[in-house]
Design a protein around this nucleic acid. Sequence first.
DNA 1: TTCAATATTGATAACTGTTACTATTATTAT
DNA 2: ATAATAATAGTAACAGTTATCAATATTGAA
Lengths: 130, 130
Amino acid sequence: MTNTKRSRQREAILEVIQGTKCHPTADWVYSEVRKIIPNISLGTVYRNLSQLSEKGTIQKLHMGTASEHFDGNPNPHYHVCCTQCGKIDDIDAEPFEKFNAWAADMYDGEIFEHYTLFTGKCSQCKSIKF
Amino acid sequence: MTNTKRSRQREAILEVIQGTKCHPTADWVYSEVRKIIPNISLGTVYRNLSQLSEKGTIQKLHMGTASEHFDGNPNPHYHVCCTQCGKIDDIDAEPFEKFNAWAADMYDGEIFEHYTLFTGKCSQCKSIKF
DNA sequence: TTCAATATTGATAACTGTTACTATTATTAT
DNA sequence: ATAATAATAGTAACAGTTATCAATATTGAA
């Protein structure tokens, strides 16, 4: 299983995640891909999302929720989860490298990387008046 | 269910998580608590771990693994997961507040908090020579 | 100390997100 | 074409967790 063959299904799945900014779950991808391939199976969606994230084409995001989220952008970047509407926004910036050095200073082992999730209020929710 | 009554089970559970530094899963807590109360049920462990973390007595940690971890220390602090042995260490430091301001600067909404998990190599694994 | 109100429990069933299995189909290199 | 095998659809199995419920324990008041 070291080699890989193309499949209509995988290409449709990739198109769907790369075509959205919403950091969807497998289930959301499944319902979208079914608009293209109506009889695709949920297992196929899971299998390909895993394969694609293992190859580094997409990334898997752990949001601390029941289900995993996926991101069509494989480059490391931060996310903000809106506490009001739940939307996950990107922060378009390079990783904050100094943070690792700061942590390493207070830790007797080594620090390699960090994964950060911000909470906040997205611009839409921010503009709603009560 | 707004009021709360004491229970032997909950107190034993609390003793177990407060008495370890290993950031255990519900299952680990279950097997430890059974040494004190052999016929305690797994559901009771889950119920009380949830209740205690909702009340802020302990905290629930999302490590990006299948099962949730718990921390008897309710104060916000960072964790390092050793990529070699999987151990979760504490970083004993106040949250890095400047990080929120840095993120807010690149985001058009508001930033409230951040949750960070570091990866690295713990001091024991670091000292092993190959 | 008894009693009523109700929070908590143990046992177990149910649920959810995900992975594994298997016979069939599709892709690829020759 | 054909042989090798990766990928699929469909479905069962699985792990972690939550819900259900009758029985038990805790609490405050009489």
